[in-house]
């Protein structure tokens, strides 16, 4: 079971899990419910560098394609091949098996600009979701 309090979140419903200098990224449980059945994912190539806020991946359901921005700046060091083969992992296990890609973190101070779990829950409530 993922420890949500240890994750950081964006208003675009992404989560970030930091392990040393690596940040794992995925979409939240709230987002996967909203998106409904994920049928395709387009992940970045390893080695690609992103600035915070740049489009890094796309997740598609029957109704909509969602662009996901990099929550922090960094270089892609891992992508989740399993989720490319079976996009339903994003729905089944959004915080664990359904992670999307991992970045080598360029600037750790950017992490502090992201929401805590409680702040994210408040945001969802306030945003009229």
């Amino acid at each position: 079971m993922a420890e949500l309090e240890k994750l950081r979140f964006t208003k675009a419903h992404e989560w970030l899990r930091v392990e040393g200098n690596i940040g794992y990224i995925g979409i939240t449980d709230h987002a996967q419910k909203e998106i409904t059945d994920v049928v395709f994912v387009e992940l970045p190539s390893a080695g690609k560098e992103f600035s915070k806020g740049q489009e890094a991946a796309v997740v598609e359901s029957v109704k909509a394609a969602f662009s996901l921005s990099a929550p922090i700046s960094g270089k892609v060091v891992k992508v989740n091949d399993a989720v490319e083969k079976d996009p339903s992992l994003v729905n089944k296990s959004p915080y664990e098996d359904g992670w999307l890609y991992a970045l080598e973190i360029k600037d750790k101070s950017e992490i502090d600009t992201l929401l805590t779990h409680n702040e994210y829950l408040e945001f969802i409530k306030g945003a009229g979701h």
Binding site: K11, A12, E55, V62, K63, A64, A65, F66, S67, S69
Partner: peptide, 23 residues
């Protein structure tokens, strides 16, 4: 037809898709 498409005599007559990017 998918959820909330429009049908007439069980035939789909209106559909749509979305892209969500930078809110």
């Amino acid at each position: 037809p998918a959820e909330f498409d429009i049908t007439c005599d069980n035939k789909k007559i209106a559909g749509a898709a979305q892209r969500r990017m930078f809110e």
